[in-house]
Computed example of a mutant assay.
Amino acid sequence: MTAQTAEEATPDLLYSEAEDDLRAAVRALLADRTDTPSTLARAESDAPYDPDLWRSLGARMDLAGLLVPEELGGQGASHREAAVVLEEIGRAVAPVPFLTSAVISTEILLALGTEKPEVSALVRELASGHRTAALVVPFSAGPDSVRLSGTLTGTVSPVADAATADVLLVPTAEGLYAVDAADVTVTALTPLDLTRPLAAVTLDGVGGTLLAGADTTPAAVRRGLLAGAGLLASEQLGIAEWCLTETVTYTRERKQFNRPVGSFQALKHRMAQLWLEIVSARAAARNAADALATGSPQAPLAAAVAQAYCARVAVHAAEECVQLHGGIGMTWEHPAHLYLKRAKSAQIALGSAGEHRAAIAELVDLRAP
């Protein structure tokens, strides 16, 4: 391998100045709009989705079109910037459809090519932030596990953010359809994660606009789910970082035997171990984002590694947050339960850890005997 080839193959795991500025802007907005009392109140209501927050984030900050080229009304940014946004969404457990609409649905449409007027028009609408889309497949489906139905019939469940989407992207054996959400029956479900609504979508032979044929639909859907799985790791990283930060802060202030409980060696070791896991999770998530951004042939492997590892770290961090907060961590008044539920639901979203480990074994030719 030449020096130039080796340099090109080395992923950039560091944050650029522009990414740091983007993080600061998104964090400031979310801190102002998703304080603990309002987040808890909205999660316990019948409408956890926050349309005003999405208008601010997606339309006014133009983040809905982050992955969309400038000629189509977007920002022309990359998956690296989208990963930064998702880190902050995870840190705030913000109830917005960035992952499902601005990443997965948008990536699918871009994979189809925008020569078709129907596709380019929909991409522009999503990039504006005034409309959102959701992919009608079970939220647990990974990049390699989607099974396409024959026609626009039947019920698909659970579909993330379907209850709040304006357009539903329905992959079938005939091709990919865009269906107006008002034309289908969407039944809200009770999710574990109260900040990400799930629903059952009943199609019953509705009409839709055919965006792509059977030859291009599977690859486009796989690309969208691959990007979603790879960038979901960044959301999980944000969850884990918030949990560790809050736990360290609390254990410094909470006293027992006239000493901060954080000074006890056993708790120090637990938090130090968690910090090491989060550092590794950050490397895995950044590697996946960089691979997706550069179109690296290693993107499927990077996404699978990131998802298999970051899912576990997010759950561990949330569990430690609940336990090390003691009695207050077990109450509904403290937001720790929202982070644990988001982490647990994300653990089986877009492919389970076992599914991603199986993909890793296949990709590196280390299949089980």
Rank of each mutant, 00 (worst) to 15 (best):
A3K: 12
Q4E: 13
T5D: 14
L14A: 15
S16I: 11
T34M: 14
T36V: 15
T39L: 15
A41Q: 13
M61N: 01
A64W: 07
G65V: 03
G73N: 11
S78W: 10
V85H: 05
L86V: 04
E87C: 04
I89N: 01
R91F: 14
V93N: 05
V93E: 01
I104S: 05
I108T: 05
A121E: 15
A121V: 04
L122S: 01
E125V: 03
A127E: 02
S128N: 06
G129M: 12
A133R: 06
A134C: 09
F139A: 06
G154Q: 03
D161V: 02
D161E: 14
D166E: 06
V167C: 03
V170L: 04
D180H: 13
V184L: 05
T187K: 14
D193Y: 06
T195H: 05
V206E: 00
L210K: 10
D215H: 13
P218I: 00
A220D: 08
A227I: 09
L231I: 13
L231Q: 05
S234D: 05
G238A: 12
G238F: 10
T249Y: 11
K255W: 09
F257L: 13
L267R: 14
K268Y: 09
V279T: 15
A285N: 05
A288R: 00
A288E: 02
L301Y: 06
V305M: 08
C310L: 12
A311F: 06
V315P: 01
A318G: 07
H334D: 15
L340A: 05
R342E: 07
A346W: 05
G351V: 08
S352Q: 06
G354K: 09
R357C: 02
R357H: 14
A359W: 10
I360T: 02
I360N: 03
E362V: 14
D365I: 06
